[in-house]
Nucleic acid binder design. Sequence first.
DNA 1: TACTAGTAGATAGTACCACTGACTAGTAGG
DNA 2: CCTACTAGTCAGTGGTACTATCTACTAGTA
Lengths: 109, 109
Amino acid sequence: MGKQMTEMLKGTLEGMVLAILAVQPAHGYEITAQLRDQGFTDLVEGTVYALLIRIEQRGYVDVTKEPSEKGPPRKVYTLNAQGREYLEEFWNTWSFLAERLEQLRQEGK
Amino acid sequence: MGKQMTEMLKGTLEGMVLAILAVQPAHGYEITAQLRDQGFTDLVEGTVYALLIRIEQRGYVDVTKEPSEKGPPRKVYTLNAQGREYLEEFWNTWSFLAERLEQLRQEGK
DNA sequence: TACTAGTAGATAGTACCACTGACTAGTAGG
DNA sequence: CCTACTAGTCAGTGGTACTATCTACTAGTA
């Protein structure tokens, strides 16, 4: 992963994970795999797991432990009301930034 | 400035400043004022000055010192060839991220 | 003279977050 | 037994924006 992308992911990766959880509950390994499929090939598991712990502690997700057919039990994360509210804020912040950047890109032709 | 925005600016603020310099040379105070006008009202000068020193050390900009009618001499930054190349990379990285985010937003309806 | 506001830049210290690189635990196939 | 895959954890590092404060110069004003 380029250093540019690494820095740009700060702040946005969190929103991306919340957006994934807004579609349906998921566990860490699954989220990592999905993001990698979407092109973030070098994303490391450790980063996602740490992020999940963070948003759990902030109360944006509910957690249930479910047995897995293979490997240790999964921690399944579900976006709750507080998380949805925070996600909406995220989209607002994102929209603002994206608009400004698009504007700057146009100005530079 | 919200904490969300603060984190999101990591990685993108640099690109924004380079994009501003791609339009025309400018000095730090000017860049800060422009960004504030565009809605980043809480952006602090210190951040921009530190960023400018960084991109100068990396060789993305050329610097000339010009006397000011008011206050100490200005450091005018001009984007050079290396900086333009880096800016193009930035837009590529940004486009990729923005597309993925937009896709996630659609999926969540 | 002294004070204030505006212009212009610098910097030490802090917090946050993604990464690196390792580790534990469980299951299945050779 | 050994490897590979699944699933999660964690200490340490580096980069970046922030906070807060500082220097330096000019103009206006009381």
